[in-house]
């Protein structure tokens, strides 16, 4: 994207126009976040930029919504529930998903397309249908309103992401490495954990993160499949938006954006590490 020194004026104009355009689109992407952060410091209980805020008066800003988040047992419980549900659901989808992705990437898999379609289905079935279907079914077998029920439902929703990312990493996987390991006497389990796993780890991790976010940000299914005991953060936000608009939601969002940035940085670092491992040059 470097502009060559011999570029014509027209090329220069185009080059800068393109950069401005991209800048605008990127701004479009983060605009909502830019709005959320200041509003979360609003001293009033509405999603409104008060005149005081626009004039940068100190008393128009406050930390009260953050205090509310950290002191309100409802929010704290929701946070605890989210933290208890999402990792377990993620673990379940990652372990089952990785196994299946390894199976799927073998050479001769019968009914590969059909199996793939079934495994991807949680991503393509409209969420409201999934929610209602799981709700009726889980009620019947006594899983509705239980921790296990919500974890299973969220795990199912996260699986397509794991499958997609892991199979994508396996496409670039050099099969001769496992053969070499087997040749040297490693059993399949050792081969998997010592050879294959480290190399597909980035895919597994990014799939896992997608699965985690799916569970962590999921509201429709948990609203149906869960009950009070499984009230997650998005559920609390949803009731908050419906019953009582309070910028506490924005405070939570701001905190979560912070965590997202941390997570994304982690992913990026991991990716760089894996590329070093695979001996690929960055780029």
């Amino acid at each position: 994207m470097e502009l060559p020194p011999y570029a014509t004026t027209g090329q220069r104009i185009w080059h800068y126009t393109f950069k401005v355009l991209c800048g605008l689109i990127l701004f479009f992407l983060i605009a909502p976040i830019v709005v959320i952060i200041p509003l979360s410091f609003n001293a009033e209980n509405f999603f409104t930029f008060t005149p005081g805020m626009l004039a940068f008066e100190a008393d128009a800003y406050s930390f009260k919504h953050y205090q509310d988040f950290f002191s309100n047992p409802d929010w704290q419980q929701a946070l605890v529930n989210s933290v208890q549900i999402a990792p377990v659901a993620t673990l379940l989808s990652v372990s089952l998903g990785t196994l299946a992705a390894v199976g799927l990437s073998q050479d001769h898999v019968p009914f590969r397309r059909a199996i793939m379609a079934i495994l991807i289905s949680p991503m393509i079935v409209p969420l409201i249908i999934s929610a209602a279907g799981m709700y009726f079914f889980y009620s019947r077998i006594g899983l509705q309103g239980t921790y296990v029920g919500v974890v299973l439902a969220h795990a199912a929703l996260g699986i397509p992401f794991v499958i997609i990312t892991v199979t994508a990493t396996l496409v670039g996987f050099d099969r001769s490495l496992t053969r070499a390991a087997a040749n040297m006497g490693a059993d399949p389990v050792t081969t998997f954990f010592k050879i294959q796993m480290p190399l597909i780890l980035p895919g597994v991790i990014s799939g896992g993160l997608f699965a985690f976010i799916t569970s962590f940000d999921e509201v429709v299914v948990v609203l149906f499949v869960g009950s009070a005991g499984q009230k997650t953060l998005p559920w609390q936000m949803f009731t908050g938006l419906r019953e009582q608009i309070s910028p506490t939601i924005l405070a939570v969002a701001t905190i979560l954006v912070g965590i997202s940035i941390a997570l994304l940085t982690t992913v990026e670092l991991l990716r760089r590490r894996s590329e070093r491992l695979r001996g690929m040059s960055p780029g």
């Binding site: 299946a100 390894v102 073998q106 019968p110 289905s121 999934s130 279907g133």
Partner: peptide, 28 residues
């Protein structure tokens, strides 16, 4: 080889069929 691949896929396939596809079919 086929069996091994299927054995790897089976747990997830059963999982998805039971926790997801079954309920959806039941709903529809």
């Amino acid at each position: 080889q086929k069996l091994r691949a299927l054995a790897l896929i089976a747990p997830l396939l059963i999982f998805i069929l039971v926790t997801f596809v079954g309920p959806i079919a039941d709903m529809l």
